[in-house]
Amino acid sequence: MDTLNIKDPDSIIIDNRADILALDQEGTALDIFRYYAHRLESDREKNPEHSIRIDIGTGYFFFSGFKEFYDIFKFIYDNKLLNAVKNPNWSTTSPIRVVIGKETDKQTKDILLSIVRDQLSSYDGKKIDFLRRLIEEGLMKFKVFEDKKFHVKMYNFYFTNPESYAEPISYDRWAELHWKKQLNGTLTPGGEKELEELETENTKTIKSVHDAIANDERIQEQIEKNSDAQMD
């Protein structure tokens, strides 16, 4: 990947080059993806078992837009930075989750439907074929938000072990409310509600991780081996 034109997203305004700011002060979503793809590829030298997960939220998904990102997605694909996710809290094994709105153009709709129906013979081109591969190999999953208009631009990047079941919980805020209640004997109604919600959510996450580990035969075999070794 060309590293000469990579911009740190924290140092620019993502305005899709509206020509309001100087060229070195503005950028596009393409700059965000290019930056993190390069950064995570470099970080893999320290964590070779890690791979990328990406959350994308976009109100308008057009195949013409995907074509602009083709080189970046191809880069992370070719460098084997995409792997199936085993963490149950991710809700899918696909490392790229895309939530899109209902609004799109006819070409994009026809292409996506053709991929689903396995009728891409009427289309040609390496970029369409690559999108098909991402979907068929379970590396990209689409979800359409249909309840109302979805005018969002959101991109989250994660770099983790795809086989890890580790999942963050909201400990700091929970601990703050928990000890405040222990010391003062009570909380405000709003505090009580927040504490209850945090306890419910944290317990749910912990149970999910526990169940995933308990049902992982590979981990259980290793636990048994360790136990046998300690007994010898």
Rank of each mutant, 00 (worst) to 15 (best):
S121M: 11
S11Y: 09
H210R: 09
K86E: 09
R133N: 07
D118N: 13
L139I: 07
T205I: 15
E41R: 11
M140N: 08
Y60R: 06
A22R: 15
N161T: 11
L81N: 06
E103W: 00
S91I: 12
L195I: 04
G138C: 07
K207V: 10
D232M: 14
E217K: 11
E176T: 08
A229K: 12
L21F: 15
P88A: 04
K127I: 05
I135L: 07
Y165F: 14
Y35D: 07
A18R: 05
L183Y: 08
D78I: 02
R39C: 01
R53I: 00
D172K: 13
F66Q: 01
I76G: 07
F69N: 02
F69W: 09
N161Q: 09
I13R: 13
V116E: 12
R44Q: 07
D232Q: 15
Q119C: 06
D8E: 10
E26A: 09
K126P: 00
Y77M: 01
Q107F: 12
N161G: 09
T3N: 15
Y165N: 06
E103C: 00
S170K: 05
K143R: 13
D71C: 04
G59T: 05
P9V: 02
D129W: 00
A214G: 02
Y155T: 05
A212V: 03
T188C: 01
I111Q: 04
G65M: 14
D172M: 09
D10Q: 14
G190W: 02
L23I: 13
L21S: 10
T93C: 08
I56Y: 03
I54G: 02
S170Q: 07
K141T: 06
G191D: 06
T203E: 15
A29K: 08
S208N: 13
N79Y: 06
N226S: 03
I32Q: 02
T28E: 15
K153S: 14
I223W: 08
H178K: 02
G191S: 07
E224Q: 14
K181E: 03
T203D: 15
L131S: 04
E45N: 10
M140W: 12
Q222T: 06
E68T: 10
N161L: 10
Q220F: 07
P9H: 03
R132Y: 10
R173G: 02
R218Y: 05
E163S: 13
K149V: 10
S227F: 15
D43N: 08
I52G: 02
L82T: 03
D31P: 11
K80Q: 15
A84F: 04
L177K: 00
I111G: 07
D216R: 11
I32A: 02
K86Y: 06
D129Y: 00
L120Y: 08
S11V: 06
K109N: 08
F66L: 03
P95G: 05
D124P: 00
P168C: 01
K204F: 15
A29Q: 12
F61G: 01
P168V: 00
R173H: 10
Y36G: 07
F66M: 01
D118I: 00
D31T: 11
W174R: 04
L198E: 03
T93N: 09
K109I: 03
L177A: 01
L195A: 08
A18F: 00
